[in-house]
Amino acid sequence: MTLQTDIDTAAAQLKGKTPQEVLTWALGNYKNISLASSFGAEDVTLIDMIAKIKPDAHVFTLDTGRLNSETYDVIAKVQQKYPQLQLRIMFPQAEAVEQMVSAKGINLFYDSVENRKQCCFIRKVEPLGRATKGLDAWITGLRRDQTANRSTMETVELDGDRNIAKINPLIDWTNEQVWDYIRANDVPYNALHDQNFPSIGCAPCTRAIQAGEDLRAGRWWWEMSNQECGLHVTSDGRLVRAKDV
C-alpha cells in the first residue's frame, strides 16, 4: 500500500475520535514524530494532552527572532510545567536573515506581499523544513473553523512536500472547546490572548482583533486577503490537504 492509502484509511478510522485518542494513535504508529508548537492556545492544549500520554514527547517551535515577549514567557512556563518534554527551538539561518534585512530593510514585509512571503519563508518555512527532516509525521494545532482555507482539512493528511503524515488532532474542535480545556486543566497560555489576540505570530505581523472580526483578522492585516504564512501550504502555494496530493 502507498503512504497516501495508509493515511486515507487512518483518516476514516479516526473520524469522531477525541484529540487524545488521535494523539495516542499517532504516537503508537509513528516512531519519529513531533508536535509543532507556536505556543498559541491550540498548541499548549496539545502539549498538555501529549505530556499526559508521553511525558518525554518531542516538540519543536520556530523562533523567528521577531516574537512577542509574552510568547517567550509562555515557553518558559511550559518548560517548567512539563520538564520531561523534549523541546527543540529552531532558528532561521542567520546569514539569510542578514542578507534579506540588508537588502530590503528590517520591516520589509509591509512593503509588498512578495517581501512578506520572503520573510515568512526565511524565518519560518525553511526552519520548518529542517525541523521535520527525518520525521515520519508531525502534529499541528489546526482547526477547521480557523479559516476557510482549513475547512476541508482532515484529522490525518499527507504532507506532500515532505512525504510524511500530518496529524491534526483538534481539527473538529471549536475555539470554545480549546479554552474550556485550558481552564479545566490549568494550562499555561500566552497572556496576549487576554488582550484580544486569538492568533499570535510575529510581533510586527500580529494585532489584536475587534469585536466581530474573524479570528485570523489580526494576522498580516495590511494585506487584507492572506491568512497563511506558508507553513501549511504546498510548494506551489496550495493548502496542504490529502485530496490535493
Rank of each mutant, 00 (worst) to 15 (best):
T18L: 10
T18S: 15
P19S: 12
P19Q: 10
P19I: 07
P19T: 06
P19A: 11
Q20Y: 05
Q20C: 00
Q20K: 14
E21W: 05
V22K: 08
V22R: 07
L23H: 04
T24M: 09
T24W: 08
T24C: 09
W25F: 11
W25I: 09
W25K: 10
A26V: 13
A26P: 11
L27H: 05
G28I: 13
G28E: 03
N29K: 06
K31G: 04
N32W: 02
S34C: 11
S34G: 07
S34A: 15
S34D: 03
A36C: 04
A36G: 08
S38P: 07
S38D: 05
S38W: 06
F39A: 06
F39W: 06
G40C: 09
G40S: 10
A41F: 02
A41I: 02
A41N: 10
E42L: 09
V44G: 11
V44Q: 10
V44R: 07
V44F: 08
L46W: 03
I47W: 01
D48I: 00
M49C: 10
M49F: 11
A51Y: 01
A51F: 00
K52F: 01
K52D: 13
K52P: 00
K54E: 12
K54M: 15
K54L: 15
P55G: 10
P55W: 02
D56K: 09
D56I: 05
H58G: 05
V59R: 02
V59D: 04
V59A: 06
V59M: 08
F60D: 05
F60C: 09
L62H: 06
D63K: 09
D63F: 02
D63C: 02
D63Q: 09
T64R: 04
G65E: 01
G65P: 03
G65F: 04
R66I: 14
R66H: 01
R66T: 10
R66M: 14
R66V: 15
L67E: 01
L67C: 02
N68C: 08
N68D: 13
N68M: 13
N68E: 14
S69A: 09
T71H: 00
Y72P: 03
D73W: 03
D73K: 12
V74I: 13
I75E: 12
I75Y: 14
A76P: 03
A76I: 04
A76K: 13
K77W: 04
K77D: 08
K77S: 11
V78F: 05
V78P: 03
V78L: 05
V78I: 12
Q79K: 15
Q79L: 01
Q80F: 12
Q80I: 12
Y82R: 10
P83A: 08
P83L: 11
P83Y: 12
Q84S: 12
Q84N: 13
Q84K: 11
Q84M: 15
L85E: 03
L85K: 00
L85Y: 00
L85M: 13
L85P: 00
Q86C: 14
L87C: 09
L87N: 10
L87H: 10
R88T: 15
R88G: 02
R88I: 10
I89S: 07
M90P: 04
M90K: 10
F91Q: 14
F91R: 14
P92E: 04
Q93F: 01
A94Y: 01
E95R: 03
E95A: 07
E95F: 03
E95G: 01
A96D: 13
